[in-house]
């Protein structure tokens, strides 16, 4: 219940933040969110900043350069866009850290099964990608050429398609034999 409430609150908060256009309100909300997020708030802020800092830098520097050339620089806009994007990123990072999606999806067996399968399969595919990359690196001491890198990428893509076809069949049969598809 707590997790479902957390997920719903996050969704509402994200939409609400996009309706606020006052930098001081967004700054207050950001301070409030960081205070409410409890211990580990510095790590939370850092995680959020790592996700949005590159794009915010590009936008801010680009805006300053263009606005300066036109003579219409608005510092309020810079605060507004930076605070809004950072606040949204902090809210999302907080949700990712504290909301257990499996618990939030209790009562939706289809969504829960989908999430469980996706998570397990993402692990499988990540491992496959890691193994293929390691194999490419192990074959030669010199960096691969562009053509070799393409062939390696295509081989990985093909192996992933192969695995997806096989795993989807195996999972379907496994779920069917256990009655999981009869709900």
């Amino acid at each position: 219940m707590k997790d479902r409430l957390g997920l719903g609150t996050w969704l509402l908060a994200v939409v609400a933040v996009t309706l606020v256009h006052e930098p001081w309100l967004l700054a207050g909300a950001l301070a409030g969110v960081l205070l409410a997020s409890g211990s580990g708030r510095a790590a939370l802020l850092w995680r959020a900043l790592r996700l949005v800092l590159p794009i915010l830098l590009v936008i801010s520097v680009g805006y300053v350069a263009m606005a300066w050339l036109r003579g219409e620089l608005s510092v309020a806009y810079l605060w507004l866009v930076n605070l809004r994007v950072v606040l949204l990123a902090v809210l999302t990072s907080w949700m990712v850290r504290d909301v257990r999606l499996e618990r939030a999806l209790q009562g939706c067996p289809g969504a829960l099964r989908w999430l469980s399968i996706v998570r397990s399969q993402v692990t499988v595919f990540r491992r496959l990608a890691g193994e293929y990359r390691a194999a490419v690196l192990s074959r030669s001491t010199v960096p691969p050429t562009l053509a070799q890198r393409y062939r390696a990428g295509a081989t990985l893509g093909l192996a992933a398609l192969d695995k997806a076809m096989y795993n989807s069949e195996a999972l379907t049969q496994g779920m069917r034999s256990r009655g999981a598809l009869d709900d």
């Binding site: 289809g110 099964r113 989908w114 399968i117 996706v118 399969q121 993402v122 499988v124 595919f125 990540r126 496959l128 990608a129 562009l146 890198r149 393409y150 990428g153 990985l156 893509g157 992933a160 398609l161 997806a164 795993n167 989807s168 999972l171 379907t172 779920m175 069917r176 598809l181 009869d182």
Partner: peptide, 23 residues
């Protein structure tokens, strides 16, 4: 009824493909 497992596997596949590095 195969929709759910197939879609879940293809989602994971799309996840991998969208992370595939293009030389």
């Amino acid at each position: 009824d195969e929709l759910l497992p197939r879609l879940a596997v293809f989602t994971a596949l799309a996840f991998l493909l969208s992370a595939l590095m293009l030389p």
